[in-house]
């Protein structure tokens, strides 16, 4: 099995020596994410398998090519879950891709994102070395937290070859409620609830309907149901539709924008249709509002906008402040001196 890792190392070393760009691609389920990139494909799927899962340690360690579905089924058998509910966006999703993409699902606002559950990674850098950062324990402050830096790095620092993730028990009880509310009122409600000790694990507003998922101890769910009100609905398919972008909203025409904002940002008033998640922290916008206008509005609210799907795959991410961009360039040069990994996928000069 280690020959699969050796093969990855050899590929990287050869590419570095030749300064030939590589595209890191496993199942290709997130090909659409980020800017267009180019180069020879390096496929990490040969390096797969769960290395360790001890339910009482609340940690799972797996090689990068392990299918995300396999991770979830191993955890499910132990009554556990990946709390950040990562989207698969297809059957080929792997755990390495999940961490590199850094995308989280409906539970993000209450549980945290990918970054919050990464405990350790092994990273194959552009120097052809496999380096271990972090580990398998809950608390670890030895050295800079490069493991968490890898979450959402879109492969620009190297090939993530192994990850250790913190996992949590599945909630004992769960319910989904539906309320009829206009946008501004829904935003107000979601933020008010978030300031109260309620076991809300997901929220979503679209087209006058607010869905709220509550998860936890039976007593807590029963109490919260009373407090929040609304009609009880079957939630599983609904939340999965959001997580996997299979809901009707996502099938509509026009580019799909993702705005990450402070949850209290007011209604945006941009043209197009909107779906709001994470208590107001994540807003999907589908429509043809001009890019500059969307970015400006997101920035004014204290957040940023990403062209998530559709449109030209150039400059999809909001530009960085100059000192932050300089740190990015220097980090890239240290991890990937020849600039071979996923060239331009995050920013044109990285």
């Amino acid at each position: 099995m280690s020959s699969a890792l050796d093969a990855l190392v050899d590929t990287v070393r050869a590419a570095s020596a030749a300064r030939a760009p590589l595209v890191i691609r496993a199942g290709g389920t997130k090909d659409f994410h980020g800017n267009e990139t180019g180069g020879d494909r390096i496929d990490p799927r040969g390096w797969a398998g769960v290395v360790a899962h001890e339910p009482t340690e609340l940690v799972i360690t797996a090689r990068c090519g392990t299918p995300l579905a396999e991770i979830e089924s191993v955890l499910d058998a132990a009554g556990q879950m990946l709390p950040f509910e990562p989207p698969h966006f297809g059957t080929g999703a792997t755990v390495g891709g999940c961490v590199a993409a850094g995308l989280a699902g409906p539970r993000r606002a209450s549980a945290g994102g990918v970054r919050d559950f990464v405990l350790g990674v092994k990273l194959l850098t552009g120097r052809g070395e496999v380096l271990a950062f972090g580990g398998t324990v809950m608390k670890n402050v030895a050295g800079y937290d490069v493991a968490r830096l890898a979450a959402g790095s879109l492969g620009i620092l190297g090939v993530i070859t192994e990850v250790s993730l913190k996992v949590l028990p599945k909630p004992v009880a769960e319910a989904t409620l539906r309320l009829e509310l206009p946008e501004a009122a829904a935003l107000k409600k979601m933020n008010e609830w978030a300031g109260q000790p309620l076991p809300i694990s997901a929220t979503a507003w679209h087209d006058g309907l607010l869905h709220v998922r509550i998860s936890g101890a039976r007593a807590a769910v029963a109490e919260a149901r009373q407090k929040i009100g609304g009609a009880s609905v079957d939630g599983a398919a609904f939340w999965n539709g959001l997580r996997e972008h299979q809901a009707a909203f996502f099938a509509g025409p026009g580019p799909l924008w993702r705005l990450a904002l402070p949850s209290t940002a007011p209604a945006l008033g941009l043209s197009g249709t909107q779906l709001i998640e994470w208590s107001g922290g994540q807003r999907w916008l589908r429509g043809d509002a001009p890019a500059d206008r969307i970015r400006e509005r997101a920035k004014a609210c204290g957040g940023h906008a990403t062209l998530f799907r559709g449109g030209a795959r150039r400059d999809v991410f909001a530009p960085l402040a100059a000192p932050v961009a300089a740190i990015h360039r220097r980090l890239k040069a240290e991890f990937d001196p020849e600039g071979i990994f996923n060239r331009g996928r995050l920013y044109a000069d990285l």
């Binding site: 850094g102 937290d145 968490r148 979450a151 959402g152 990450a260 204290g302 957040g303 940023h304 990015h328």
Partner: peptide, 16 residues
């Protein structure tokens, strides 16, 4: 580094 929004564009430098 970081933001009151759920994430920032680019690398998660706040983690470092």
């Amino acid at each position: 580094f970081g933001s009151a929004a759920p994430d920032v564009p680019g690398l998660d430098l706040l983690a470092l």
